[in-house]
Design a binder for these strands. Structure first.
Lengths: 223, 223
DNA sequence: CGGCATCCGGGAAGATACTG
DNA sequence: CAGTATCTTCCCGGATGCCG
């Protein structure tokens, strides 16, 4: 029972060092990633973080709360459920997540075949979106990924992603890996549909265009 | 002697997760920070990383080399010394360092009174430089911080920092904390000179202007 | 089921001493 | 100066159990 556990300090005034004290512990930044699209419950966080153990998640949530990065809130009755939500400053960590992700995507060792949470996929859209390719597209797409729903809107060369459902030209249902294959891989929608990995309800052409809007950075030269 | 130690994986295709596998280990990102201004020797890295132990530094350098983030080089004779140098892709981690530092500088818990390495100070200049305040300044300053020398050039609303010495209007000699006080604090140059914390050789007015070019971000609201 | 405490094993980090 | 060897400490991850 050491409440006063001070996370091992770097004793360094550098902001980067302080960032590591705030979000450098294992899993911490990925917890923030899972919270980037709104409040989440304990169990939902576990689903998005394959391999994290409950006690570590509990501990990280407590530390992130103490740091002012997230708050725990109780939803009003009758849904009196506890949820975890980023503070405004916590949401600003999105830039860190995106820049780190974009940099690491150039790693020769990056393995995109591993599992991906729904929040990760949506964050990858925000990260890899290429505004120049989207100047002449204005559409809304619904994504259904298991229990997760997202609305993705492209307009004026900008991309918006949020949880929920909305008026959309098309609704896509599938796993994150199917969407990865469609957007970042060279797998055609037809093939994914034939495999049953993906279902498209609505305007197919919107989806065809959508899959062209994102580009992974080129790989760094291996040693 | 387990050379094949695989760093604990997140089993996550997300680029951010991979970034944590690459630079998420303790000290790793700070080692990259120390290397951002050019190759460094083992002992020089230790000086810039107060508190790191030699075995951890050895291990990190090996891992970062395996990941393709840095290379070890032997300088040509007669100075046949081994140095560590970032790869081109390793240098690109500067963005991660800067964004993380800028974000963490808003933390209510950030303590700028702790020690700061010379590389950290120079990286903070790159991070906190405000181009709009520098439109009408074109100058070169030499910084002497212990054994470290840097040339800082401001021109066309841009800032350049590199190791070494050059033709400069002014040479500043002092500790990192003195420069922090002058640039980010409200301590006047006169006071710092009187305390012997800082010495100015050359155009004082250039220094006066220089100290106004940088702005720390505002603090996030405490919980 | 959600959340948190506790115990335990393995491994990484810290400190120190030692060697070429 | 540049690391290596060793020992201790502490964090991480897994399992279990309690309590609402």
């Amino acid at each position: 029972m050491k409440l006063d556990k001070i996370t091992r300090s770097y004793d360094d005034a550098c902001g980067t060092a302080h960032a590591l004290e705030l979000i450098g512990d294992r899993w911490a930044l990925l917890i923030a990633r899972e919270l980037m699209f709104g409040p989440r419950r304990f169990g939902e966080l576990r689903v998005g973080l394959p391999g994290i153990s409950a006690n570590v998640l509990t501990q990280r949530l407590a530390e992130l709360e103490r740091s002012g990065i997230l708050m725990r809130r109780k939803l009003p009755p009758p849904a009196s459920v506890q949820v975890y939500e980023l503070t405004p400053w916590g949401y600003e960590a999105e830039e860190v997540i995106k820049i780190a992700g974009r940099w690491a995507a150039r790693s020769p060792a990056h393995d995109p075949t591993r599992p991906l949470s729904a929040a990760s996929l949506m964050m990858s859209f925000r990260t890899m979106f290429d505004a120049e390719r989207a100047t002449d597209l204005a559409s809304t797409l619904n994504f259904v990924i298991g229990a997760d729903r997202f609305v993705v809107t492209v307009a004026d060369g900008r991309l918006a992603v949020e949880r929920g459902e909305g008026e959309a030209e098309v609704t896509l249902t599938g796993s994150t890996s199917a969407f990865v294959a469609a957007v970042y891989g060279d797998v055609s929608l037809r093939v994914l549909e034939a495999e049953g990995a993906l279902a498209i309800a609505g305007e197919r052409s919107v989806v065809e265009q959508f899959t062209t809007l994102f580009a992974l950075p080129s790989k760094a030269a291996p040693v």
